[in-house]
Design a protein around this nucleic acid. Structure first.
Length: 550
DNA sequence: GCCGGAGGCGCC
DNA sequence: AAAGGGCGCCTCCGGC
């Protein structure tokens, strides 16, 4: 293991360590000799934060096989102790271990340094100290706190690997054809308006909307649109598209069309293209594990919300293919596993789990089975979905009991965990209102508020156990695939979105890559759900364009 | 004029 | 098939 830290002047200092954290030799400046000596297959890096420490190494041509990311590990360990939002630097880890107040996080610490040998910026130590010693001690402390919990160890390893993958994916970028994107914009919005303003299609729709109402309406203003519908006799409480869809009025069609297109214009229009696409690659900043459930987030570009209409712009380079793989119906399968519901696990053997559910208890009605299952996992209580959940409850008492139990725990203000042991955050300051509303002398208004807040919390914990366990599985899947892809020249992970990933690879190795993706999914199933009969199949599809994958 | 929250919608 | 979970991002709006 190679501990790698920044000095106050920004230079990098490294210290070889054993896996037990014992020093081997002396710390010294990272130099070209170190880089030449690196064992690309096995070296494990120890550093404060992958997002900060890895980019300069990547720029120097280093590919980290594995790492121990102190911040990633600390976030998970802190969460299990009920502490969210505490600083996660090596110095903070040490301070807590020694009973001192943890130093505040500095914003500059979170920004990647530009180049390897011309680093500048803050570091944790005064100049005369060895910064790798702080890292080493933080590592030892975390190792001791993690203990011998195998599931937790798997989670930490997978999350560290995910951090590497996230940083690499941001640097590599998603193949993106500017010309195709521009053609889509031209087709749907018309030519780009000079100097801002509405594109022609949107301007025409705005006129149509005002004409349909018979008075001027600004479709960009929800307040205005709502008032307009009220004025013509439709007392809607919001202007969400599914609310408007239910109205019978000539303005409905242009309003809905406007909503759809203005979204494309503002979220993924010409400005987006200019800001985020460079050299036929869309470079987002991926933040692995940034969501409390363990899902990834992104900063900038909205990479996890690429609209379907633009997936035709995601095209493999000449001579390359995209291998697109998603885990089919992952969340109900995960529920079958974590709840140990053998009936649901048996159904998970089918390619289409919802069809299996439909045949089992919904008279073959697949749509009803799907709505019911989603309702069960999201805590839906009203409408058709809420009603259908009772069928599931009768049919799969073990699985439904599991999510119901998680909801009850949430309503009591308790914390729940993912299958590998990621903790959800404890209730926040609003829980005081729940306590007040549950007291004998509470007013009706206080009781109502308490019920609503407790219900919100219950739906959150109900969903957390499923969503976070699915994120556990996906992280192990991704980590395993990333390792196996090192054997395939030219193959790169370019996208990951909760339960779906894309590899960009030379055409001749596309088939082997698809096999590796399936193997990694099977390995993740065995590791995350040992002994379970559940199936978590993935469906790799080899395409030129992302849009052709589904 | 600035800024945080709300409204709304894209993805899973 | 309902409007239940998690996000990021944009615009509007209202309070200061």
């Amino acid at each position: 293991m190679l501990a790698c830290a920044r000095r106050p002047d920004g230079t990098l200092v490294v210290q070889q360590l054993t896996d037990d954290g014992d020093r081997v030799g002396a710390p010294h400046d990272l130099d070209q000799h170190d880089l030449d000596q690196l064992d690309p297959a096995g070296q494990r890096w120890l550093w404060a934060s992958t997002g900060v420490d890895y980019p300069p190494l990547m720029a120097a041509g280093i590919r980290a096989a594995r790492c121990h990311d102190v911040a990633v590990v600390e976030r998970i360990l802190l969460g299990r102790a009920g502490a969210f939002g505490e600083p996660t630097s090596p110095a903070a880890v040490l301070a807590r271990a020694q009973g001192r107040p943890a130093p505040a996080e500095r914003v500059a610490d979170l920004d990647p340094a530009p180049t390897l040998f011309e680093l500048s910026g803050p570091a944790d130590q005064p100049p005369d100290e060895d910064p790798t010693e702080t890292l080493r001690l933080a590592y030892l402390d975390q190792r001791a706190r993690a203990g011998r919990d195998g599931a937790l160890g798997l989670l930490l390893a997978a999350e560290c690997a995910s951090a590497l993958a996230a940083t690499e994916m941001g640097a590599v970028g998603l193949p993106w054809r500017r010309d195709i994107h521009l053609a889509v914009l031209a087709e749907l919005l018309g030519p780009r308006p000079v100097g801002g303003g509405r594109p022609p299609t949107l301007a025409a729709l705005a006129d149509e909307i005002s004409q349909a109402f018979g008075f001027p309406v600004n479709p960009d203003s929800a307040v205005d649109v709502r008032a307009a519908f009220r004025r013509v006799g439709f007392d809607i409480e919001s202007t969400r598209s599914w609310v408007i869809k239910a109205i019978d009025h000539p303005a409905v069609r242009p309003v809905l069309a406007y909503k759809e297109l203005v979204r494309l214009h503002t979220a993924n229009g010409w400005a987006w293209l200019e800001q985020w696409v460079r050299g036929n690659r869309f470079h987002a900043e991926y933040l692995s594990g940034a969501v409390v459930s363990g899902r990834w987030a992104t900063r900038g570009g909205g990479a996890l919300q690429i609209p379907r209409v633009l997936r035709q712009a995601v095209v493999a380079d000449p001579g390359y293919r995209l291998i697109v793989a998603d885990a089919a119906q992952l969340e109900p399968r995960v529920l079958a596993a974590i709840s140990a519901d053998l009936v649901l696990q048996a159904i998970s053997a089918e390619d289409d789990l919802y069809a299996g559910l439909a045949a089992d208890g919904f008279g073959g009605n697949r749509a009803a089975a799907k709505v019911a299952m989603l309702g069960a996992m999201y805590g839906q209580t009203t409408g058709e979905g809420g009603r259908l959940v009772s069928t599931l409850r009768a049919r799969y008492p073990q699985a439904m009991g599991y999510v119901d139990g998680a909801a009850r725990a949430g309503e009591r203000g308790e914390v729940v965990h993912s299958v590998l042991g990621r903790a959800c955050p404890p209730p926040g300051t609003s829980w005081e209102a729940v306590r007040i509303g549950r007291q004998q002398d509470a007013t009706p208004a206080e009781r109502t508020l308490a019920d609503r807040l407790a219900g919100d919390r219950g739906r959150f914990t109900r969903n957390f156990v499923v969503q976070a366990s699915a994120a556990d599985w996906a992280a192990v899947w991704l980590a395993g695939l990333r390792t196996s892809l090192t054997e395939v020249a030219g193959a790169e992970l370019v996208f990951f979105q909760h339960d779906e990933l894309i590899v960009h690879a030379p055409e001749p190795v596309a088939e082997p890559v698809a096999g590796l993706i399936e193997d990694a999914a099977d390995a993740a199933r065995r590791l995350v759900f040992p002994g379970s009969a559940v199936q978590t199949p993935v469906r790799p599809v080899i395409v030129d364009r992302y849009a052709d994958a589904k």
